[in-house]
Design a protein around this nucleic acid. Structure first.
Lengths: 222, 222
DNA sequence: TAGATTGTTAATCGATTAACAATC
DNA sequence: TAGATTGTTAATCGATTAACAATC
């Protein structure tokens, strides 16, 4: 560690990936030291980029030997400001929330959904991963004690504005938005990342060959 | 238009967004000319960036007056290589496919799901947006006449490798992948874009304030 | 024409890659 | 020590922003 100041967004995204990777690795058997080259090869990111990214983090690598995995894991957790549980809130229909669990089983990534809200009346009372689905309007009284400041939103396009407003009022200031909105109007100071499926599908449809790109950081090495 | 050569990936993603925006606009009433400033304000992209992006596209703006919306729409369609219908294939559980329609009602974006495949036996025969869900194994005999070269994949993490292989064999070479894979191993020449929900959630959880970022292009102007 | 906006060039900014001395 | 890998500086690459002459 030497680089002072905040890491650029691109680095932070990759650091999150390293954290996911280490989490999975630590849950497995292998526990030897880990070099930047190994991380580089596993994740398809250039070796220098890995070291540069890690230079923002408060961790010491051993020249000739690499990094201690669990030390690195903790350092990343601390640098990224991930609390023990990474509590978050989810918004969407019960069907959507339930389907999302297939691709984002949050516990496997060290995160926990502490509350969820649906736009459909009929969903209220359903249970998704042990959490009861509440009415969207109840978001207003989101228990601050839950301590969630991040939300995953996949609601109907028409509810987006309301959802963002309400989340903001409830103290949630970072959102991963899966619902595409053409003209985003966020509450002041809110941090919203969009995954725009339609736009990305269109840009992929583009006939000409493209470099493999990766929203959310990094791409395949091959 | 003057800039020759291929537009950078970032521009292509924004061009896709302009295309979505124009599509929505043309379906509405307003039909007057459109300036780069207007696009810029609606989408939260800098004015110069809009003009620079459009300089890759074969369309003429009128100084002092802007662009003709439907002319621009067609030019974008042609530049992006979007065929009339933008056919694509989807892979995931029936529940997932059905939930995804809430956030990506493809017809509204001028795209059409021409086939879909589930990893669950019990899903076979279900109908999602008028298309019968087929077994994953049938992907191998994907009718080439369907002409789909793009896929939206949100399958179980364990199926990713198989799905990619099969899609590749079926002539699909571009994939939007919603299932996070730690160590991506793609078939040679395949173009896979990842939306990594876990990594993005972690990077959002990061306590320090960040610039609003947008995977998939552009972010809020406010 | 005058006003407005385009298209493009040059300047800036930021991120990635290359190279290498420091060091375990 | 010798070999390997780190941490960092400098070079490169790419994308965004600023500025402005061309022009409808």
């Amino acid at each position: 560690m030497a680089e002072t100041g905040r890491a650029p967004q691109a680095s932070i995204l990759r650091l999150s990936r390293y954290h996911c990777f280490l989490g999975e690795m630590l849950r497995g058997e292998e526990t030897g030291r880990l070099t930047s080259r190994e991380i580089s090869e596993e994740l398809g990111v250039a070796e220098e980029t890995v070291r540069r990214d890690l230079s923002y983090v408060d961790v010491e690598g051993r020249p000739g030997a690499g990094y201690d995995p669990s030390e690195l894991y903790d350092a990343l957790e601390s640098y990224l400001g991930l609390s023990e549980e990474c509590p978050f809130v989810a918004v969407g229909s019960a069907q959507m929330l339930s389907a999302l669990r297939t691709i984002f089983p949050s516990e496997d990534f060290g995160m926990r959904m502490v509350a969820c809200y649906s736009e459909l009346e009929s969903d209220v009372g359903a249970v998704v991963s042990g959490v009861e689905v509440k009415q969207l309007s109840e978001l207003a009284v989101l228990d601050r004690c839950l301590d969630a400041t991040v939300a995953l939103v996949a609601c109907e396009p028409t509810s987006v504005a309301t959802v963002l407003q309400t989340l903001h009022a409830a103290g949630v200031d970072s959102v991963l938005m899966l619902t595409p909105v053409l003209r985003p109007h966020h509450p002041e100071g809110m941090n919203v990342t969009y995954f725009r499926i339609p736009c990305s599908m269109k840009s992929l449809a583009s006939a000409a060959p493209q470099k493999p790109s990766c929203c959310g950081g990094g791409h395949c090495a091959h």
